[in-house]
């Protein structure tokens, strides 16, 4: 029917699965998540999907819609050709739990390894809006993990042990550039978090639903700081002479 939309939804779990067709009615302004909810209500109450705010603010409903990483709650059906089915799969970089839900627990483990904010002591916390703006861009991150999903280092090369991914480089940038923070995370960014593995293809920036300039504003400045600290020949000589 012209007023219906056909969804091809991934149904399955860690052991495997397949795309299954479901037909649900369209309504004005409908987003992919609405259509998935209709499938739950009409055809498959046990269909697993994560969502919360349904307004692009919590970052729960990331998936691959027609192969593109999207937040389902912000993805309008009328942007897709009306006569073609729409496929929805879970994010590929993470292990599938069930249907559209995948296991993103690795991200929470990485986050724990980041040394926390450390407040400058003995000063009145005053700074300008311009200083705030710089870190507020990073703090807009809603942790949808779509950037982690598309990053080649994680998706194709599976370097999860050596590389923390764009989400956490954004978080690290937000801490390193925080006007009141005093901790030094550069050695960790250099080694454990593997910033050198990023080859700035900007896939992360392209998919960010919050339009954070991940590569330009977070990763490249951190790379520059790492290079300054660890690869500047003058500083290196200085360190050798000082015996450090």
């Amino acid at each position: 029917m012209a007023d219906d939309v056909v969804l091809k939804l991934y149904r399955g779990d860690a052991a495997g699965g397949e795309l299954v067709d479901y037909e649900v009615p369209r309504a004005p302004g409908m987003v992919v998540l609405d259509a998935v909810h209709s499938v739950q209500a009409m055809h498959a109450p046990d269909l697993a999907v994560r969502w919360n705010c349904k307004a692009g603010r919590c970052g729960s409903c990331g998936a691959e819609v027609n192969g593109r990483p999207r937040l389902m709650c912000m993805d309008r059906l009328d942007k897709y050709p009306p006569d073609e089915p729409i496929s929805v799969r879970p994010m590929r970089t993470f292990p599938v739990v069930k249907d559209l839900v995948c296991d993103v627990s690795w991200n929470f483990e990485v986050n724990k390894r980041i040394p926390p904010f450390q407040m400058r002591e003995g000063v009145e916390p005053r700074f300008s809006q311009a200083e705030a703006d710089r870190v507020q861009e990073f703090r807009k991150c809603i942790e949808c993990f779509l950037c982690q999903n598309v990053c080649h280092v994680l998706r194709e090369h599976h370097e999860q042990e050596q590389f923390c991914g764009p989400r956490f480089l954004v978080r690290l940038a937000g801490l390193e550039m925080h006007p009141l923070d005093t901790a030094d995370r550069l050695p960790l960014i250099h080694k454990q978090f593997g910033i050198g593995l990023c080859n700035i293809t900007k896939c992360c920036t392209e998919v960010c639903p919050e339009s954070i300039a991940i590569t330009d504003n977070a990763i490249i400045p951190l790379k520059e700081r790492v290079v300054d600290r660890f690869y500047d020949p003058v500083k290196k000589l200085f360190r050798v002479l000082r015996g450090r």
Binding site: F117, M119, A132
Partner: peptide
């Protein structure tokens, strides 16, 4: 203020508060 001391970055007044 405690939240700020834990790293929250609120919008600022002209004199930085």
């Amino acid at each position: 203020r405690e939240l700020e001391s834990w790293g929250a970055v609120f919008d600022r007044t002209k004199d930085g508060a």
